[in-house]
């Protein structure tokens, strides 16, 4: 199993467990033996969003295509559509988050899992690959966030 890594977002550490696979849309994937895998937000995504106020799935469990918009999230700092990381079949959404989404912040790699998806995980990154993806994107992400904030103040 690869060693865990920690990506530094400025001074804020985003831990990345070694046993997980990662998607470029900042979700982690915990592979399941039966081809059904759990997905959740990486610490990087959670740090950008901060406290989650509202989470909603806009599809019922069933077939999804890669990048299909499947949900919506509103947090202390951000709003976003949520998109399927892979093509496959959503088996179920984490029912506890629908009552109270705070586990995404409290235990993002555990109880804060988002959904289970039956899918082919061949295209996903390992922890080193995701770390490299974050490194490449970090400057641009900061520019984008700053640009949005400027646009709001205009």
């Amino acid at each position: 199993m690869p060693d865990p890594l920690v990506f530094l977002m400025g001074k804020h550490p985003a831990p990345l467990p070694g046993e997980l696979l990662y998607c470029k849309n900042h979700m982690w994937c915990r592979p399941g033996a039966d081809g059904v895998h759990a997905f959740g937000f990486t610490a990087y995504a959670v740090r950008l969003m901060q406290d989650v106020y509202f989470l909603e799935w806009r599809v019922d469990p069933g077939l999804v295509t890669a990048k299909q918009e499947i949900g919506y999230i509103e947090t202390q700092k951000a709003t976003s559509g949520l998109y399927a990381p892979l093509a496959g079949r959503v088996v179920r959404f984490n029912p506890e988050l629908l009552e109270d989404p705070s586990a995404i912040n409290a235990d993002g790699y555990g109880k804060g899992w988002l959904f289970e998806l039956a899918a082919e995980t061949g295209g996903l990154l390992d922890v080193a690959g995701y770390y490299a993806h974050l490194e490449v994107g970090w400057e641009a992400t900061q520019r984008m966030l700053k640009g949005q904030l400027n646009a709001i103040e205009d």
């Binding site: 998607c23 470029k24 849309n25 900042h26 995504a45 950008l48 969003m49 990048k67 918009e69 509103e74 947090t75 700092k77 951000a78 709003t79 976003s80 559509g81 949520l82 998109y83 399927a84 990381p85 992400t141 984008m144 966030l145 949005q148 904030l149 646009a151 709001i152």
Partner: peptide, 16 residues
């Protein structure tokens, strides 16, 4: 109108 004063992370999270 822009929906509120929050940043939109859709692009980062895979919106197309």
């Amino acid at each position: 109108a822009v929906g509120g004063l929050k940043i939109d992370l859709s692009k980062l999270f895979g919106g197309d």
